[in-house]
Write a protein that binds this DNA or RNA. Sequence first.
DNA 1: CCCAATTTGTTCGTATGTATA
DNA 2: TTATACATACGAACAAATTGG
Lengths: 254, 254
Amino acid sequence: MHDLSATFPSIAHDSGGLPLYRVVKRSLLRAIESGACPAGEALPSEATLAASFGVSIGTLRHAVDELVAEHILVRRQGLGTFVALHTEDRFLFQFFHVERSDGLRGAPQVELVSFARVRIEEEEALALQVRPGDPAFQMDNRLLLQGRAVIHDRITLAANNFKGLTERRLRERPSTIYHLYQTEFGITVTQARERARAVAADRTSARLLGLPAGAPVLQLRRTALTFGDRPVEYRVSTVNTTQHDYVQLLSRPV
Amino acid sequence: MHDLSATFPSIAHDSGGLPLYRVVKRSLLRAIESGACPAGEALPSEATLAASFGVSIGTLRHAVDELVAEHILVRRQGLGTFVALHTEDRFLFQFFHVERSDGLRGAPQVELVSFARVRIEEEEALALQVRPGDPAFQMDNRLLLQGRAVIHDRITLAANNFKGLTERRLRERPSTIYHLYQTEFGITVTQARERARAVAADRTSARLLGLPAGAPVLQLRRTALTFGDRPVEYRVSTVNTTQHDYVQLLSRPV
DNA sequence: CCCAATTTGTTCGTATGTATA
DNA sequence: TTATACATACGAACAAATTGG
């Protein structure tokens, strides 16, 4: 980050009635979004940022507070403020909502079952806000928890957001798939919207999960969003809930 | 609220390493919990509270900020700060997570199907932290959304928390059941933990929801908690998800 | 092991703006 | 209009955590 005043420009005190700290927040978001502060990197110190924006330290902190609440920034006392990384931890606590019925929670072991370049179908196109028939990647994963096949994921990505994605790069990623989006394609998933329902397992899911076809399974339809609520991933998860539950964690201040 | 300094006593600046604003927060919680500030009532103004606690207004606001984030207090500019009420709105956005697949959201129409005083079973006793066999109330509700029977709720309450509860009082409540807990029994539900899974509908649920027995339905097991994470309600919801979804709303700052 | 520099965390106080009754 | 209450913005000082010498 070379040019402070270009990345964090001084802010006029009257920006359309919006409170100053919101203007600062938007400005910070733009900087993060644009890649000026790569994920995992520390931002300039609060004092520096406040000076650069031309606002008080309290106002700057107010803006950062909200971004921290949204898991976009992470503060570490004595170290600095960082753009949140999609490490395994963040994945687990923010985006992965299946755990064993006794409460045991762990990272899934992922098996890539299929990978293909396809023309996108209606349902997926609607979720990703592209036109039906547009090029897309579609993959099927089988997720094992505590050694048992529990989840079948079908993931759809618009091809234009993930140029150069190959089965090999998927297989060889060292961490979570959201970490791959972030580091390889500059796409940070900030939020996911999920809807759940119970359905009878179709043949594919039943086979992958070792269930009889027609068994009741939990179906999750997730749209993952990046900055500005822009959809970047659509995922249908089929969960064998005989020994596992779907749990939305509440992350509240204690 | 007569005696300010008794309800909001001056706080020592060193309380076991805990930050001052957390001590203030705990003190506020105790006051709310004890009923010194009845639900729906305005608290004393921030300036008054800060003076009573002997802390700065910024510190007091920090404490209130957290309670607002937890939906325990509600601020209204120009009016005051209020203990959150279990109105229909709050119920809908915080505790009711089923909506039609097209996103239409509305308050359910509730039909009380059965009400009984029972000895509590193992599963319910565990959730409510009482002994199996202790006296309890158990009721079955059928919930209609947009005119269709969508949810079957079986609710269990420890009898000692709801002394004097009768079928009549349940039927004649004017608002949500959580509002009844709050106004009639002084129990404010602050939080709920839910686990979802897909199961085959049992006979009772199938009948109430107009489904064939064995149809895949969503089963929610919810423990509702009051202050201090004390469990007060256990509920098993069975949801017909053919036209409705389970959705956990995310309430984030924009 | 301690020290110094850096950074966030907490606390204080004040002034002004905005919404409500 | 006025009084009250929360919302925003400013600035300063010290505490606590981390890192590196």
